[in-house]
């Protein structure tokens, strides 16, 4: 058993508080007194921390918290006998964390956009119209803006939106495509095939480093990991 203090980031804390709020709404609707509500909610909160402490040795992840919440009885089960459970299901169904649609749409467009870019570049190299490349660049810029906007929404959602990975891919598509195109133009002017291949591999590695770096930055900025701890007094009653 782990005996170290379990600490939750604000985003994870909000997941726990959402569950406590859902239970409290049911207890309120059932006419449970304030003192009893307070007692029940502080027990449920302690229960969550006990389960988290048994589950993880380090700082709990989002998956840990969701797994523990899934382990708990649903909020409706706190309704006293004889309470209209159908009404509770309609009124008090807790919201579930979800992936933002914009993030998924932008990621899909990003993948399609990169393929289209490759086709257009080859077409231009074969003597095709370069005007379409400008249109493609504008589309990729729009995708990147959509990705950045998605990242912002995920950060502000306090854990209720996820999908950081597709949003990040979308946000990076324009800067990386632009950097790759410039690199390609520079490399294609090199006469030596060996140098060309070496530089191309180096640039691919650079892409990987950029994506990894951006992912680490996202982990810090989009998924803040503060040191806040839930205390019973924080539960609104």
């Amino acid at each position: 058993m782990n005996s170290s203090m379990v600490e939750l980031s604000p985003a994870l804390q909000s997941l726990v508080e959402e569950r406590l709020d859902a239970i409290e709404r049911i207890l309120l609707a059932a006419g449970v007194s304030r003192g009893e509500r307070r007692g029940i909610l502080s027990e449920v909160e302690s229960h969550v921390f006990e389960l988290l402490a048994r589950r993880t040795t380090g700082e709990p992840t989002r998956e840990d918290v969701l797994a523990v919440l899934a382990q708990l009885d649903p909020p409706e089960s706190y309704a006293p006998e004889g309470f209209d459970r159908r009404k509770l299901n309609e009124t008090f169904a807790p919201p579930k964390p979800r992936e933002p649609e914009l993030s998924l749409l932008a990621a899909g467009s990003a993948v399609a956009g990169v393929f289209l870019l490759l086709v257009l570049v080859m077409s231009v190299m074969a003597g095709g119209d370069g005007g379409l490349l400008v249109l493609e660049a504008t589309a990729l810029l729009a995708i990147s803006i959509a990705g950045a906007w998605s990242l912002l929404r995920i950060q502000r959602s306090n854990g209720w939106l996820y999908g950081t990975r597709p949003a990040l891919i979308s946000a990076l598509v324009f800067p990386l495509a632009a950097a790759n195109c410039i690199a390609f133009l520079l490399l294609s002017s090199l006469g030596d095939v060996a140098i060309f291949l070496g530089m191309a591999i180096a640039f691919l590695a650079f892409n990987g480093v950029m994506i990894y770096g951006a992912w680490r930055v996202c982990e810090k900025l989009v998924m803040p990991r503060g040191k806040a701890t839930i205390h019973p007094g924080r539960v609104s009653l």
Partner: peptide, 25 residues
């Protein structure tokens, strides 16, 4: 938990809080 809260309300149980090594008291 609801039963503990009710029994405490009915004065059948006495309570005290103590710090926990894992989280809330």
């Amino acid at each position: 938990y609801p039963l503990l809260a009710r029994l405490a309300r009915d004065k059948c149980l006495l309570t005290r809080t103590a710090a926990s090594p894992q989280g809330p008291a």
